[in-house]
């Protein structure tokens, strides 16, 4: 008697949930760390002096020219070789955070540079210092500008979390493969995993649109 899909799903529910939980934590950590780092990258590219900008540019060009999988593998293998014992989870999150930072850096830079110069001049004209200008005039505008792209990057991180299965992190995709190795229902379970990823990412997309609407300036 062929096992029914629902029976199998129910049996595997804990495994699936644990995998999903790990996927979520990988993504969240990568997005948070990557965004913080990315803001520094973006600020350096926009306001830094020649040398800082050069160093940061080289950093982002190398990261963006390298496939994420290579970053993950490199992070995993190189860390153990140089004696920094990172478990696969940490190595993977590090790689994803670095990847995220290069994207967020570009986004922040783009957002800041899109603001017309007149805004800075008007702020100067009423006597604001640079710090005040950045905090009250530039950053709020840049934030609204790059919010959609940032939400997109967040979704990319969820998708990239699947790559950690290659280095043995038991996130959703690896767990799915484990389940399939037991019950051979690859069609159903890959499909199910795909559906879960779709729901999460689609949810992020919708949430992003909602935040965009809520923070939009009336015109």
């Amino acid at each position: 008697m062929a096992p029914s899909l629902f029976d199998q799903l129910w049996l595997a529910r804990n495994v699936i949930l644990s995998g999903l939980g790990l996927t979520v934590s990988i993504s969240l950590l990568a997005i948070l760390a990557g965004s913080v780092l990315g803001v520094f990258v973006g600020l350096s590219l926009t306001y830094g002096n020649r040398w800082l900008r050069l160093v940061v540019r080289v950093y982002t060009d190398i990261i963006r020219g390298t496939p994420v999988l290579v970053l993950v593998l490199a992070s995993y293998y190189v860390s153990s070789a140089v004696g920094v014992n990172l478990d696969p989870f940490s190595a993977g999150v590090l790689a994803l955070a670095v990847f995220c930072s290069s994207h967020v850096g570009e986004i922040v830079r783009g957002g800041l540079q899109a603001i017309p110069k007149g805004q800075t001049e008007a702020a100067k004209a009423i006597g604001l210092t640079f710090g005040q200008t950045f905090a009250y005039v530039l950053w709020p505008q840049a934030l609204r500008q790059f919010l959609p792209a940032w939400v997109n990057t967040a979704a990319e991180m969820v998708k990239a979390s699947t790559l950690l299965s290659v280095i043995g992190v038991a996130e959703l995709l690896l767990r799915t493969q484990e389940i399939i190795s037991r019950n051979f229902m690859s069609l159903q379970f890959y499909f199910f995993a795909g559906a879960l990823y779709f729901v999460v990412n689609y949810g992020i997309e919708r949430f992003g649109k909602y935040v965009e609407r809520k923070t939009a300036v009336p015109s």
Binding site: A155, V158, K159, A160, S161, T162, L163, S165, L173, Q177, S186, Y190, F191, A193, G194, Y197, F198, N201, Y202, E205
Partner: peptide
């Protein structure tokens, strides 16, 4: 666009 490419490859 909302699916990880690795899932598609394995599928």
């Amino acid at each position: 666009r909302n699916l990880p490419i690795l899932v598609l490859v394995l599928f």
